[in-house]
Design a protein around this nucleic acid. Structure first.
Lengths: 199, 199, 199, 199
DNA sequence: AATGAATGAGACTTCATTCAT
DNA sequence: TATGAATGAAGTCTCATTCAT
């Protein structure tokens, strides 16, 4: 009931505890699913009392939201760092795709949690806006490329969605079959994306 | 815990009841999520007692498995009907994509349930085999196309995965933003797929 | 979360169960207090599972509200039955006081629960209206008596409040010291009330 | 569980802190109820850590007992100061009633806490003795008055209880409907009490 | 086939209290 | 004295499932 102030100052020990909870929960949620994983399982797993959980999170739902929020923030940052200062729109798309593949293959657990969150209305609404922004980001590069005559004209939003779909599905398959992030077939994906949008 | 014989003969009224349960459950599961939807909610929703549910399904989990099984069976049939007798491998791929887009836009709820099922290990194992088969189906057409010199050589499995990703992500976005299945930008998708794999 | 329809039809067995729960809870609540009495204690006390409680009541709070509602309804009915058809306003007051003393000494447990409910804002608001009505009922008789010159004029609401206070406090003391309802000093109370208001 | 020595000397700053805790707790307990008010809420409300609470009180229960003890002590003192040196027993009763009304209207929150305490056996036993003494005090004056022929003979204990009931109920109603202590209808109450006992 | 009452494990959460710092 | 992190028993409530009718 008493919600936790989102900007509450934590001691460094407190911050570590919180991170430990998040880390462990992400693993468990991804492994067995959000609902099948109980708060008891999480606190037992790191050997603390139940109260600790509620000292750092106001509810199990709040924990997932935090995980999603932080995860989506990080992937966005990762993408933008890869794109910054790249003048060629096709290169920006390529770099974005590579950054996504990298990040997703390093954070397969978060990806799985996002996939779950899409399946419950409680969480999905939080994700819609993020998706719209992400697709619009890519669509902008596509329109730039069309304007510059680099690719044939077409429906930028559908293309951006397709790119997103390619990136995520390849990451999903890879996550399920191969633990090594370095073996992601990024070049193949990039080639397909770039020829696919060439038109 | 007595399990229900999967091939048990049902009277036509019984079959209708069962379908009614499935239909209503699919809607609710897709809307609010599998776990947040209780068996009580389902039976209340169609105005029957709890016993009815357990007459037709041995458990809530069993119901979801049935939904998934029937759903995946149907989409596979739909795709194969669209491909049958088509000698050109690229046309087979195109027809398969179009069939998937059609089916998914007509069955967005099942799609959402499949997405959920991927997030829990209990169900995910059932899906892995299906995905492998589905990707291998497409990969076979791709290899045929490569052999016939219709497209450049490349990693057929990654390409097939990409095609699957495009198809599903476009369907997801469309399901969330546009209720009308006829407005799926199938031509755009097909163009991107075909040029994307052209190499 | 799913609240119980207040007009839900119960089988006669169901009604008995519900009554059993109410009866036992009233006893326990009165004995040890509302909060110190857990739902587990109640269901264990009558030897049923926890779910039974929530089949009949949507929450522990709901149970208390029901107890209060039914209790206050009954005392009101009891009073009004005692007053009906009595033309003399002083007799109406006397009969009302006697009826209250009777009912309270037969229902000391409910009285204690009402006293508790006054101490928490969640419940108190429900009680204010009831008190206002009850006092106004008595005040009306007092004004009638003043109009008819039976008693000296005065502040009818304060008088009615005083009568209420006398009745309840005598009942409280009696409940704590003497289990036998027949020994309530009703005549003494009535005499004090009647001379007190005479002015 | 180390209990706090009840007569422990506190620095003046310590005494202030303790008073601050008591004051704030009384307000919250009266407003929302004893159980719904957590220790965390109290210490947060005055901006100190949890340790502070347990420095001054050995438990939440101990805090309530202290509040009750101090409150009942004060009202008794207030009444006795009002009665001292008054030779006429009826005047003593009148003065006692006026003193009670005054004190209760100035300390409505404590009154509510006492009402709560009556509803849990843990606390009620502490209150029984106090009530018995208080009623016996008044009964003594009544017997004096009877002996002196000032009022008709009657059951002094019931009368004293009635007086207590009047006083408290008028205070309760006033506390809930009118914040201004000066508007208590003390004269009306006194008149009713005096004529009521006259017989 | 169907009902709806019953079960009870187990989920989430609260909170009085303790304790290292 | 004081803090705030930690404890863990205990509380309320949910819900898949069973079963007498």
């Amino acid at each position: 009931m008493m919600s936790i102030a989102p900007d509450r100052k934590l001691t460094s020990r407190g911050q570590e505890r919180r991170d430990e909870l998040v880390r462990y929960a992400v693993t468990r949620f991804a492994e067995r699913g959000y609902h099948p994983t109980s708060v008891a399982e999480i606190v037992d797993g790191i050997g603390v009392g139940k109260g600790v959980f509620y000292w750092y999170f106001s509810s199990k739902e709040d924990l997932l939201r935090e995980i999603l929020r932080e995860g989506l923030l990080r992937i966005r940052r990762h993408q933008q760092a890869a794109i910054r200062n790249e003048p060629n729109p096709l290169r920006r798309i390529e770099n974005g795709v590579r950054a996504s593949l990298e990040w997703l293959s390093d954070n397969t657990e978060v990806m799985r949690l996002v996939d779950f969150a899409w399946t419950e209305d409680t969480f999905a609404s939080d994700l819609r806006r993020g998706r719209a922004i992400s697709i619009e980001d890519t669509a902008k590069h596509l329109r730039d490329a069309m304007d510059q005559g680099l690719i044939a004209p077409g429906d930028a939003v559908t293309m951006a969605t397709a790119i997103r779909g390619i990136t995520e599905e390849v990451s999903r398959l890879h996550a399920d079959t191969d633990a090594d992030p370095s073996t992601i077939p990024a070049d193949d994906v990039v080639r397909m994306v770039l020829t696919g949008i060439a038109g």
